[in-house]
């Protein structure tokens, strides 16, 4: 409990309980297996991309190109036929490699060239989006159905999306308990001290980008498995969502403070809010407005809460 409070997750858990209660009231059979599976497969991409942002933010950097990167990977999957590269699994592997390459580019720009990540990833995001538009100028194209089938499959009665999220959290937990995790937090909370303590600051940040983008790659494949078509705009909204989830999850944008669990809770809050808005029968024209309002309210709540605990 004290660990949770220390991580600043309590207020976000509170929010999660509220939105869960609302959702359970509004969505029929919310606790049934079918809607659970449905919800999990809808939330999985958001969770993965928010986790990605969280690990990068923990190292005191930021990535505003995640959304555009998702679009680029989606368009890659929609453009390259699976038969040309040796089957859908090979194609998914290539998509992950592409994600790692994008992460490596961002990581290099931030660590080797020393550019401010906020604006540098904004710039690379424009490049990713431009490349995605080049591949898929109009939404369309088809993605190998096998990818969709794999995603909606179950292994030992556990839905694949849930497995992916569990695997991602497991990786996170393992990293967190080992040297890499401690180094990321050390670099994020005080880069100068970390450097003096002999931690390779640039290398740690670079690895944070790589791990983050691996998750982005998984998230992009998950999205593509659901839509089965290419769209250069499909990822756009994830940039705001990931940054908002990180803040809602109590992870400081100044780096070094917070846990992946916070990002998970933040992603769930935002995902469930979208669900609530959908199931509450709110007219579609109001949905964008409410989503924005909820994000602002959640941010305000978190900021005030953090301030209160900081004073106490």
């Amino acid at each position: 409990m004290r660990a949770l409070r220390h991580a600043g997750v309590i207020p976000s858990l509170l929010m999660l309980v509220v939105v869960l209660a609302l959702n359970a009231r509004l969505q029929h059979h919310f606790f049934s297996m079918l809607s659970f599976e449905d919800n999990v497969s809808t939330f999985t991409p958001t969770i993965l991309i928010c986790l990605a942002q969280a690990i990068i933010v923990l190292s005191r950097e930021l990535d505003l190109s995640l959304g555009a990167g998702v679009s680029l990977i989606n368009c890659f999957l929609a453009t390259v036929p699976a038969s040309a590269v040796g089957g859908p699994w090979a194609l998914m592997g290539l998509a992950l490699l592409l994600a790692l390459a994008l992460g490596a580019i961002n990581g290099l720009i931030v660590t080797v060239f020393g550019l401010p990540s906020l604006i540098a990833t904004f710039a690379t995001g424009a490049v990713w989006y431009g490349l995605a538009l080049t591949m898929v100028p109009q939404p369309g194209g088809t993605i190998d159905e096998t990818i969709g089938n794999v995603y909606s499959d179950t292994v030992f009665h556990i839905p694949v999306p849930l497995l992916i999220v569990l695997a991602a959290m497991l990786i996170w937990t393992v990293i967190g308990r080992h040297r890499l995790g401690r180094r990321i937090v050390a670099v994020g909370s005080n880069p100068v001290a970390a450097f003096q303590a002999g931690i390779p600051v640039a290398g740690v940040k670079f690895i944070a980008y790589l791990v983050g983008w691996l998750l982005v790659g998984l998230g992009a494949i998950a999205i593509s498995a659901q839509t089965l078509s290419g769209d250069a705009g499909v990822g756009t909204a994830y940039t705001l969502t990931s940054v908002a989830a990180v803040v809602i999850g109590g992870i400081s944008l100044a780096g070094g403070r917070g846990t992946p669990w916070g990002a998970l809770v933040g992603a769930l809050v935002l995902g469930i809010v979208a669900n609530v808005i959908y199931f509450a029968g709110i007219p579609s024209i109001w949905q964008e407005f409410f989503k924005g309002l909820v994000i602002v309210a959640a941010l305000g709540f978190m900021v005030i809460e953090q301030r209160r605990t900081a004073i106490a």
Partner: peptide, 27 residues
Amino acid sequence: VLGVPPLVMTLALSSVVDGGLIVGVSL
């Protein structure tokens, strides 16, 4: 005043304004 990072604050508010405009124009 509140200390919200500018990136988050302005991005969040822009989604409120955009959402509000959709409502206003449609109604």
